[in-house]
């Protein structure tokens, strides 16, 4: 059986690995989105008390400053004394919390790129702070955030491949199975895997760019 037959036979398992990677990606981006947005809004419009702001800054610095592979080990082995967490759960949590730290800064820069005068004008016209954020600031910030967020999406796809170190059998690990059971063919197998990651990345980016074009104000941001 040559390597192409093996690849053809085992292709469903590669796709299964890709599926695991996609679920992991969707889960970690969702956690990151909710957390990142909450942190961003609290940092910009929340109470200025240091008891609120400092923990957010510390959280964001730690999760942006520690390699994800270390975080995976800490979450899988470290907190197992308190909560019995599965490898997949640990991967989602570690990568989601980290993505939250990054996304909070993506959103913060997008919100801050909206001129401060708009908030003042909205408040002067009698809008509440919440309403001004929702109706004036957010629609403009969202447009600015899509570009950098596409970047975060792309880097997180690639980082899902690290989850195999704690035993999540995703695409990269499935590729290892083929390589070791056929005693080699590293170039061929990883070329196929690279293509799969590329297609996923490209599809996601195209969708996000299409979304960006749809939201763009005609004649203004083009």
């Amino acid at each position: 059986m040559d390597i192409y037959d093996v690849l053809l036979r085992d292709f469903p398992f590669l796709l299964k690995g890709l599926g695991v990677a996609i679920v992991l990606l969707a889960a970690l981006l969702s956690i990151g989105f909710v957390l990142g947005m909450a942190i961003c809004l609290t940092q910009l419009y929340g109470p200025k008390s240091r008891f609120v702001q400092w923990p957010l800054v510390i959280y964001e610095r730690i999760f942006r400053g520690v390699p994800i592979i270390i975080m995976l080990f800490i979450f899988f082995y470290g907190i197992s004394g308190v909560v019995d967490i599965s490898a997949f759960g640990a991967a989602i949590l570690a990568m989601g919390l980290r993505s939250g730290a990054y996304q909070s800064q993506i959103f913060r820069s997008a919100f801050q790129s909206v001129p401060a005068g708009q908030m003042m004008a909205a408040r002067a016209m009698g809008m509440s702070k919440m309403s001004a954020i929702r109706n004036i600031i957010f629609p403009q910030a969202a447009r600015h955030a899509i570009g950098p967020w596409t970047n975060e999406f792309s880097s997180e796809i690639k980082e899902t491949s690290l989850a195999y170190v704690i035993g999540v059998v995703e695409l990269t690990r499935q590729a290892h199975y083929i390589i070791t059971s056929t005693q080699g063919n590293i170039l061929t197998v990883f070329a196929v895997v690279a293509l799969l990651y590329f297609i996923l990345n490209r599809t996601g980016n195209s969708l996000l760019y299409a979304f960006e074009r749809k939201l763009a104000v005609p004649g203004f941001e083009k």
Binding site: R9, D10, P12, F13, H176, Y177, T180, S181, Q183
Partner: peptide, 16 residues
């Protein structure tokens, strides 16, 4: 460690 033949590996999606 399923990348350590002949002790443990995966072939066609099954542990062997």
């Amino acid at each position: 460690e399923a990348s350590f033949p002949p002790w443990a590996y995966v072939e066609g999606g099954e542990f062997k």
